[in-house]
Nucleic acid binder design. Structure first.
Length: 215
DNA sequence: AAAACGGGGGC
DNA sequence: GCCCCAGTTTT
């Protein structure tokens, strides 16, 4: 038996010690379009860098109409530090174009619809749905996958399996916030390599099963 | 010079 | 389901 209520409550407390929860700040206003674009920028990129690039970008354009008008070179320059800026700029333009042509310039609020967009997978689709629309979904990224497995709360081999395992056993009231909670926790305490178990507030609940890298 | 940053897609 | 991919920032 794993006391998920207790553990998440402790983590929520613990997170207050740190800067604003990461995902929240990626899209301050939680506008679906912001969530989507920030997610595209965040691939293989440090969160702080993503956040800064998002702020710069949204200051210039914060909807598909505006964004598609930004010259490629300028767009690339705006997001440059996130890495893979050429690929990402291209992807952003492509998606904006599809949004305008097929979705009336709006970001879909259904996971299956979002998945049709090139460059959008389950993580991004779920984040848009949960954070942008407050609709049911579970956004499983590496943090959620790693941490729930370390606890022994789920026993899964990849993020996709974790998402469906959590759909089965995670109480619905946590669906929208689990990602936010665990990203902050995962970047400060339950880090991928050498997790800081000695200062971890939920240490006693944890089975310490590592599905990622050890040491 | 080497490591960290993680998700999507192709097969 | 496994493997490949990409480029910047930080140490």
């Amino acid at each position: 038996m794993f006391a998920i209520d207790t553990v998440l409550k402790i983590i929520e407390q613990e997170n207050r010690r740190f800067i604003e929860p990461v995902v929240t700040t990626i899209s301050r206003k939680r506008i679906p379009f912001h969530v989507l674009i920030s997610c595209l920028l965040s691939l293989r990129t440090k969160d702080q860098t993503t956040r800064e690039a998002s702020v710069r970008l949204f200051a210039v354009a914060d909807d598909p109409e505006g964004m598609i008008k930004i010259p490629a070179q300028k767009l690339e320059k705006l997001i440059y530090p996130v890495g893979f800026y050429r690929t990402k700029a291209k992807k952003i333009k492509e998606i904006c174009k599809v949004l305008l042509e097929k979705y009336d310039g709006k970001v879909p609020d259904e996971i299956d619809e979002l998945l049709k967009l090139n460059g959008v997978g389950r993580k991004t689709a779920n984040l848009v749905v949960t954070l942008g629309y407050q609709k049911p979904g579970i956004c499983v990224d590496t943090h959620v996958h790693r941490i729930t497995n370390r606890w022994g709360y789920v026993t899964t081999r990849n993020p996709h399996e974790t998402e469906f395992a959590l759909r089965e056993k995670l109480p619905k009231k946590y669906w929208l916030t689990i990602n936010d909670l665990l990203v902050t926790f995962g970047q400060n305490i339950c880090v991928p390599i050498s997790p800081k178990c000695s200062i971890c507030p939920v240490n006693i609940y944890c089975k310490k099963v590592d599905v990622t890298r050890h040491r």
